[in-house]
Amino acid sequence: MTVAKFVTASDAMDSWRDDVLTGKPPTFYRIADSGPLARIEIGPKLITLIGGAPGSGKTAFVMQSVVDALRLNPMLRAVVCNIEMPPEVLFDRQLSRLSGVPLEFIRYRKLNEHHAERIDTALSTIDSFADRLCFVCPPFDLANTAAAATEFTDGHSDGVLLVFDYIQRISPPGEQGDKRGSVDASMNYLRMFSDAGAAVIVVSAVGRQKDSKGRSGYSGDAMNLASFKESGELEFGADDAFILAPSADNSSIKELKHLKARHTEPVDISLWFDGSIQSFEAIEPGTADPHGFSAALAASWGER
């Protein structure tokens, strides 16, 4: 005979009432000092899903978020499982963004004396959190990632951020019937990681969608929750779901479309993407200059 398990509303209310009146607010790991990006909720027991077309910049955006989360949250540790880019390439990009030195100079190792001061400052910034960041080595599966996270965070319970880039190619334990079944199983495991107290960022591929004129592509207007590849458990299991889509009017502007928000109201964010340094900046609503920070950057960086 099955034993019924339940709690009455009156019993649940006692602890809930006390928590509402005297409890602590949720913990969030800021990924920006201020502005629209600072309002994105990434924190313990939350799964944030970020999708985008090939070449949309989703890995650049996620790694910017990870680096800035480590910079702004001194006790946080991050574990990154990236199946496409080795740590050195990811570091190249962040060195470019933090220094303002174009990625071309860093990638092809053409740095000169004009770059030295900015490179040194950026390296010092990276060094300040390097011991709180680790990258998963092959095999790129959930079992190895969980083991790496457990060992890396052993004795450090102040906060952990797990990043999976991208989920369609990171295998869960056991045999699955097809790709969709594999992704569904992966999300079940990620929810367990989240329930255990980790903050989780999941990067997903998206499929082509038809726009209002019947054209197939990656248009931002056509993207929705069904755009995530092997859609189903992905968007169901996520607390927040975003898609990074190109603007129809300007190739340098990306729209971070907030398609699902379990705990808040979804709000889209417009971003200015500087591909030369792999940097995203939020565009404040009503800003006259579409990338209003440009003058400040020009003054601080000087001639590149």
Rank of each mutant, 00 (worst) to 15 (best):
Asp165Ile: 05
Gly292Asn: 07
Cys81Val: 08
Ala9Met: 12
Asn250Gln: 07
Phe91Asn: 07
Ser231Thr: 08
Pro290Ala: 11
Pro25Ala: 15
Cys137Ile: 04
Thr22Gln: 14
Leu142Gly: 01
Gly214Ser: 08
Ser294Gly: 04
Arg107Thr: 05
Met75Ile: 00
Leu297Lys: 03
Ser99Met: 07
Ala288Met: 05
Ala296Val: 13
Asp239Ile: 13
Arg180Trp: 00
Gly232Lys: 10
Thr125Asn: 02
Ser194Arg: 06
Val206Thr: 14
Leu234Gly: 02
Asn144Pro: 04
Phe242Ser: 08
Phe135Leu: 03
Ser65Leu: 12
Gly174Cys: 06
Leu142Asp: 01
Phe105Glu: 03
Val79Ser: 00
Leu133Cys: 05
Asp141Glu: 09
Lys254Gln: 14
Leu225Phe: 03
Leu70Pro: 03
Phe164Gln: 05
Ala69Glu: 04
Trp272Ala: 15
Ile201Gly: 00
Gly275Met: 11
Leu103Ala: 10
Ile83Ala: 12
Ala130Leu: 14
Ala60Lys: 02
Pro87Ser: 07
Met13Trp: 15
Ile243Cys: 10
Ala116Asn: 11
Ser251Ile: 07
Asp274Val: 08
Phe152Leu: 05
Thr150Trp: 01
Ser231Cys: 08
Leu142Ser: 03
His156Lys: 10
Ile167Met: 10
Arg304Ser: 05
Gly286Ala: 06
Cys137Phe: 04
Lys45His: 06
Phe140Thr: 02
Pro25Arg: 14
Ser216Cys: 08
Gly302Cys: 09
Ser96Cys: 13
Tyr108His: 12
